[in-house]
Each structure stands twice: as C-alpha cells, then as structure tokens.
Design a protein around this nucleic acid. Structure first.
Ligand SMILES: [Mn+2]
Ligand SMILES: [Mn+2]
Ligand SMILES: [Zn+2]
Ligand SMILES: [Zn+2]
Lengths: 136, 136
DNA sequence: AGATACTTTATAATGATTCTAAAGTAGTGT
DNA sequence: ACACTACTTTAGAATCATTATAAAGTATCT
C-alpha cells in the first residue's frame, strides 16, 4: 500500500500537488515497517543517500510542515535544539533512550490507563502524552 | 526561608559563589509562592523590571544553566523555539494550555498511578513525565 | 593587600529555522 | 498540444535563540 500511486492519492486528497519532491519524501518517510522519528537533518541526509535528484533543504522544510498540517506527521516535544517529527500520528507515548537519544513508540496497551483527576474550568483535554526516559 | 541569606547558603553549598547577579536571579526565581515556568527571555524581562542593576543576557544564560546542573531548575520539553525551565525540580506532570501557552503543575495526587508494562532489556526507567494538552 | 580562580560582560559566532523572490512545474481550459 | 494560472521549488539571505570568546571585574584565601 505504500507505493507511488498511494502517495499520489494521499497528497491529492488533501490538496497537495504530487510533485517529484513530495513523492520522494513520502517514500523516505512512509515506505518503512516501523514508526520513523526524525529531524529535518536526518531526513535531508536520507534523501541525499536514497534519492538521485537533490531536494533543497527549503523544500524539505516546506514539505514536512505541509505534512504536519495535514496530519501526516506529528511534532514531538523533546529538549533538543532540533525539532523532531513522528510518522506515527496517533496519540501514543514514548520511551526516550537517553544514551542513544532515540525514541521508541509505546503501544497504548503498553501503558496502563492514565487518569487525570484534576479539571481546569472551561478547558478540555486535547491529548495526553507520556515520555518515559530510560538509560542503561 | 527565601531570603538573601538562604540563597547565599544554597549557592555556597553547591560550590557557586554568591554574586550579586546570582542572588538577584534567585530572588526572581524562588521568591514566589507558586512554581515558576519560564524562558530565558521571560526571566530577562523580569530582571530588568524588578532589579536596579542590569544583568547581562550572557550571565542569565550562564546562571540558569548552572542552576539546572545543580538541580535548582529543571528543563521542560515543549514544542517551542525557546527552552523552558521550571522551578519545581521534583518529578511532576503538566497541563499545557494551548490557548495561553502556559504550563500548570499537576500534583502527583492529580494523576492516577502510571503503569508502564513494557520493558527494554538492559534499560532502566529514569523518569515518567505526562503532558496534558488542554484548550477551550 | 596580593594572588588566584571564578564570574560577568560585550560582542561575535553558530546553527536551526524562516523568509524572499525568481525560476520551474502541475492542473485546467481550450 | 498550447497557453494560462496557481502552486511549488530553490538558492540564498535574514532571523533569532543559543553558545563561544576573551577581556575586565570580583570573591575567596592566605
Ligand atoms: Mn537525529
Ligand atoms: Mn514565555
Ligand atoms: Zn512515536
Ligand atoms: Zn512544573
């Protein structure tokens, strides 16, 4: 299902023109078995290796943020100078391995139900994210 | 307990010389009733208002990171371009109000026990942090 | 007081991200 | 296929939080 035609449909269905660059980026991001957590710099390096044609850094930024706005990518909160993204856009939790600085997805079944007992008047809960720091 | 003498003791006890600037910064940070969540820019503005003598931005950076290393401050993970710090250095959770972009501390009693069922071989859990996004 | 290590400061450098505006391309209608 | 238009890509410049530099100032010790 992660072939070129599919990426084209995905892009079209949300009003993004299926350009060479966007399709290459889709392949790099979604043609994998596991969730991919990455920075712009990671993605840029991967594209330089995997793809023949050079995609400008500006396009990579533009595309990643377009995908984020269309909910094809999620931004992840970490204490680093670079912004992280996640191809798993569902609500889910993470291990952060502090040795390697790598993120690992937790399935919802990996985490017991989280109960938030306090309420803020007039405010609704939009999401609950857990970050579990681990190390050797 | 949050008087000047106390700050001096606090600084000395961890090998930081009690300078004018560090004491001013201590006052701005710890002479309050509630947890303070802030950016360097927030702190700089506060110091300009509250304090007579000007403290350079470089010193504010230096001091905040010195305090962080001594565990007087905690860094908070958020998806923003600026780094956030927290005067509450205990393990605790947060509401993030997406309208105002303000953090609110959750007491541990505000959150039901979090059970992490999955284990990563050879890795230990260092901390568990929950971020609850809220909005109108 | 004098010696020394630590600290502050103005300023420059860095680096991720965002902006700009010109050239290129995809979709639409003919 | 051709032209038209809106969207996209791109190189390069600008921005801005953060970090580095190195000279002047200060705390602590004897
Ligand atoms: Mn990375
Ligand atoms: Mn702020
Ligand atoms: Zn993930
Ligand atoms: Zn807090």
């Amino acid at each position: 299902m992660n072939n070129k035609e599919n990426f084209i449909k995905k892009l079209r269905s949300s009003g993004l023109r299926p350009t060479r660059q966007r399709i290459e980026i889709c392949k790099a991001l979604y043609d994998r078995k596991k969730t991919f957590h990455f920075t712009i710099d990671d993605l840029n390096k991967i594209l330089r290796k995997k793809s023949k044609e050079k995609i400008s850094l500006a396009t990579i930024y533009n595309t990643v943020y377009a995908f984020k706005n269309k909910n094809y990518l999620k931004e992840i909160s970490l204490n680093t100078n670079k912004t992280y993204f996640d191809t798993n856009v569902s609500n889910h939790h993470h291990f952060l391995d502090e040795n390697s600085n790598r993120l690992i997805d937790l399935k919802n079944s990996d985490v017991g139900k989280v109960k938030i007992k306090r309420k803020i008047p007039g405010k609704k809960i939009k999401s609950i994210e857990i970050l579990v720091r681990i190390s050797d």
